[in-house]
């Protein structure tokens, strides 16, 4: 069972206090988008063995959404950060690269 530190309130919350929200940094496609764009937005999800960015809500806590960068294979957590961003902040990118030098980036 994972522990993730909520960047909003500082609690090291265990998984039962959190609600998962799937892949992070999706770009929303609404009316006017092509079928392909909408399909990707709705359904095409990464399923990497390795570095992954995913949304979590501190549901039994401060109620805020945050994003965790972690390794899906080893469950190593590289960092967490508030969800109010379209891309991972630099210090998270750096933290991932330190631990996974061969990592190709989050896109």
């Amino acid at each position: 069972m994972l522990i993730l530190e909520c960047p909003h309130c500082g609690i090291r919350a265990e998984e039962t206090e959190l609600a998962p929200g799937g892949e992070a940094h999706l770009k929303r496609f609404g009316p006017g988008s092509s079928d392909q764009e909408f399909e990707d937005y709705m359904f095409a999800r990464k399923n990497p063995k390795g570095v992954h960015f995913e949304r979590w809500r501190h549901a039994y806590g401060c109620g805020k959404w945050f994003i965790a960068a972690r390794c899906t294979a080893t469950l190593e957590v590289f960092g967490t950060y508030p969800a109010q961003t379209a891309a991972p902040p630099q210090h998270i990118i750096d933290a991932v690269k330190t631990r996974r030098p061969g990592w190709e980036g989050y896109k």
Binding site: C9, I11, E17, Y60
Partner: peptide, 10 residues
């Protein structure tokens, strides 16, 4: 103050 859950509820 600590917000969490008690048993199965917030």
């Amino acid at each position: 103050i600590r917000r969490s859950r008690a048993g199965q509820v917030a």
